[in-house]
Design a protein around this nucleic acid. Structure first.
Lengths: 353, 353
DNA sequence: GTCGCCGATGTTACCGATACCATTTCGACG
DNA sequence: CGTCGAAATGGTATCGGTAACATCGGCGAC
């Protein structure tokens, strides 16, 4: 069901018959058509559009007039092929429904668009092989690639290095990034959570935790600090996916149901923590008096719930901006002073602990 | 700071010296290089990769071996130019930080990837002229375009129609879509909210509302039903952006501060409603006894807060899936039985009203 | 007056794949 | 045994821009 009946092209009402015949015969308008009508060579049209400063004001205006009259839209694919600049940056996220990354995506996209780059979005969640996704992306010859996380198949790593495309990994740290890196230490974040709870006098600490890669590292950090302090029993409700609200409720229920005593619950995300708090409230458990709760991420609601949520604040938008800047710098051939940027994190103490 | 020191190309350790010299001299591997090494013509390599069934198993294997040995990655840009198939679908959202659209994005992207399409993400929020964004997108010759909403500049509309690219608008209804449409009536959703509150006996209804386009339409619907029922005074706290949690709190505070009496508060999103509930609780206002609250969107937490949230449920993922299917059908030349699909909405009554 | 340079524009070739059509081979079948 | 057709492969042109270099006219410096 074609939008246009076959053999009959719509007559753009605003377009006078100034085009060469074949342009009106259904083929798309090309730069040659514009050139012909404007009485210049194709390259001059190209210059008028991409480097207006190289062209006489008169020619410029003439070309622009023809462009708008004919509705010419440059074929960026052709341009990309010849100039070897695709104007595209690819961004890969594990998934976006848990909303941990949306600020980063938003900022990244905004920053790149300001410099004329479009973002190719890759979601690797349901991808058994991130490698396939990356291969498909590299084929499109993006000028930069943003990756979430630092754990990639060796094959992926090799492919990316071989491609010579600027890469920035984000949301994690690694001593040996593929190229550039903007992130923070999840291990230290976990440690900070542990220390905070210990400092508050808690020694019976439960976890309601998601099972993604980075959360796992935070958990390691947390557990190691607890172990250093002689705490080896840490009741944990481990959820398979990066949990949502309801999983927080279930998590607390599971912890309490197991008979373990907990005076504090640490969660791998604020959303989980919110669920834990909801469940606690329904059970008449006071927060923080009976149980302290802390989250991770400092989502927008964290400061405004009651009690407000103690959490780890990440500069999510900053990560996006720095990643964009790093890629842009590399693309434009500028110096990248620091290949590895640690944006750190802030433990924000609020009412829930 | 180039990753590779100038004049010195990295020696891929895993690659034997089977490549033509110029391939090793720093230029990317092309289909010709592969063809030469495999002892076939370029077109055969192309077929081996894209239509393996047209090629002898032996040739296929030989080509594949060379491809993996040389690390050849087909240049999709060149392929796109010749074949006039970019393998790209563009998706435009106003913004993603309010998380209303993330499920749609996720599903849309997943469905399209399964068919080999990549998604070009456009965020039009900070774009004064959506038109510019669209123009940039059309230049990339996507095979389909997903747009959020039905309100577009006439210029944008014209450009899209002229482009002959399949378009699906979503998250709204319109009698005259650009091409295809998957959405629901915001007006009716607003009306349903009003009727529900009226049925619950409320006549003093306040609004805490975001100011985006579609929310505005819902508000119209809501107000018109209230007006039909003789209610003309509707205290409203109108927030500029599609509000977050904190704005819900402020909204309720504003309503109460204005001296208006309200027995029910309708919100333009669940997140706002959650904020309203938090504020009410802090003020000792019981929900739903003192004030009923309802939201919009049926976010994941809505069913699990206490009280659970009465809201309008939208099949967000379904919208993404249907939109993807509509585009794919049109791209693949299949029939699209219904150009306009109304996915409707469900009023979900829960504890907050 | 001549030279040289600069700014504006044009000519040509090319980016790297695939569409289109031609060619070759080989087996089936009359 | 010759013809036909399908399967496998190849040659050539082409997609629509832009890089690289060439050309041309005008103007200032010596």
């Amino acid at each position: 069901m074609a939008r246009t009946p076959p053999g009959k092209q719509p007559q753009d009402p605003g377009t006078p018959d100034a085009l060469p015949r074949h342009a009106r015969a259904g083929k798309a308008v090309t730069i040659r058509d514009v050139a012909k009508v404007a009485g210049v060579s194709p390259i001059t049209v190209s210059r008028a559009l991409n480097h207006p400063e190289l062209v006489t004001p008169e020619t410029l205006e003439r070309v622009r007039a023809v462009v708008s009259r004919t509705g010419y839209v440059p074929n960026e694919i052709a341009g990309s092929l010849r100039s070897r600049r695709s104007g595209i940056v690819a961004a890969v996220f594990p998934q976006i429904t848990n909303s941990m990354f949306v600020d980063t995506i938003q900022t990244l996209t905004d920053c790149l668009r300001q410099e004329g780059y479009q973002v190719l979005l890759g979601l690797s969640s349901y991808e058994e092989r991130e490698d396939e996704l990356i291969a498909g992306i590299v084929g499109r010859r993006p000028e930069g690639i943003y990756l979430t996380g630092v754990a990639h198949a060796p094959e992926t790593r090799r492919r990316l290095i071989a491609s010579h495309i600027p890469v920035v990994e984000a949301w994690d740290l690694s001593p040996s990034p593929i190229d550039m890196l903007v992130g923070f230490s999840h291990e230290k974040a976990g440690e900070a959570m542990a220390r905070h709870l210990l400092a508050k006098g808690h020694r019976e600490i439960g976890l309601v935790w998601g099972n993604d890669l980075r959360a796992g590292v935070r958990r390691q950090g947390l557990l190691s600090v607890l172990a250093e302090n002689g705490i080896h029993e840490v009741p944990t409700s481990l959820e398979p996916a990066p949990g949502m609200f309801q999983r927080g409720r279930e998590g607390l229920a599971e912890l309490l149901g197991s008979g373990a005593r907990v005076s504090a619950v640490a969660c791998s995300s604020d959303v989980l923590a919110q669920g834990v708090i909801a469940e606690a409230r329904d059970r008449g458990i006071r927060i923080p008096e009976d149980i302290a709760v802390m989250g991770f991420g400092d989502f927008d609601f964290a400061a405004h719930t009651s009690p407000s949520l103690t959490t780890i604040a990440i500069e999510k938008a900053l990560i996006g901006r720095l990643a964009a800047q790093a890629l842009l710098a590399r693309i434009q051939g500028r110096e990248v002073p620091e290949r590895i940027v640690d944006v750190g994190f802030r433990l924000v103490e609020r009412g829930s602990t």
